[in-house]
């Protein structure tokens, strides 16, 4: 995965970039399966590797596919991102160790989900139950975000409806 990202950073052909981004998404999905997050992995594989790639290819079709300019002074951006990374290193060093059952996230809110989910909602998949019932309002918000983006894409591209790429994008965004 790290290798993919490094090649992604170096590559200048945008088509290569898009394909590599898809590869990266699939690798991420594999890692998520290894971490027991099957629902997230499924979403990442379909949305991250599927829809995103289609959207990017649609946009590439409408634009040219070669990055012409070389990288400008790379040191300032590198310094900024390294600083953010260093801050995150500083923060994560104090977190509970990997797979520590006594960590706060495993002891505080979640036990009720795991113990009572069958009695309270009747859905054996806890992720589904939390998504649709306990935190259903987040999901409404998420749908609204997609609605916003869909309307936004329509508003931006309406005047050029004749070209096929635009219609394609609107469908995918919905």
């Amino acid at each position: 995965m790290a290798l993919t990202v490094i090649v992604l950073t170096r590559s200048r052909n945008l088509f290569t970039v898009v394909v590599l981004a898809g590869v990266y998404s699939f690798l991420m999905a594999t890692a998520l399966v290894a971490l027991d997050a099957v629902d997230v992995a499924m979403t990442e594989a379909s949305v991250g590797a599927g829809i995103s790639t289609v959207l990017l290819l649609g946009a590439l079709y409408l634009c040219k596919s070669e990055e012409t300019k070389p990288v400008r002074k790379p040191w300032l951006p590198l310094a900024v991102s390294a600083a953010a990374g260093a801050l995150l290193v500083f923060g994560t060093l104090g977190l509970p160790a990997f797979s520590d059952p006594a960590a706060p996230i495993h002891t505080h809110v979640v036990p009720r989900y795991l113990n009572d989910v069958l009695r309270e909602t009747g859905v054996p998949n806890v992720v589904t139950a939390v998504l649709a019932s306990y935190r259903g309002y987040d999901t409404l918000g998420e749908t609204t975000v997609v609605f916003t983006a869909g309307i936004g894409v329509i508003a931006l591209l309406r005047r050029r409806r004749k070209q096929p790429g635009a219609a394609n994008k609107q469908d995918a965004a919905k």
């Binding site: 949305v47 995103s52 996230i105 806890v126 939390v130 998504l131 983006a149 936004g152 931006l156």
Partner: peptide
């Protein structure tokens, strides 16, 4: 399960942003 739920939401939000950015 709770982080899984949050990240499902985050993935969809990310794709919505991507679509708008590409438009």
């Amino acid at each position: 399960p709770l982080p899984h739920v949050l990240i499902l939401t985050a993935i969809v939000v990310g794709v919505a942003t991507l679509a708008l950015g590409l438009a």
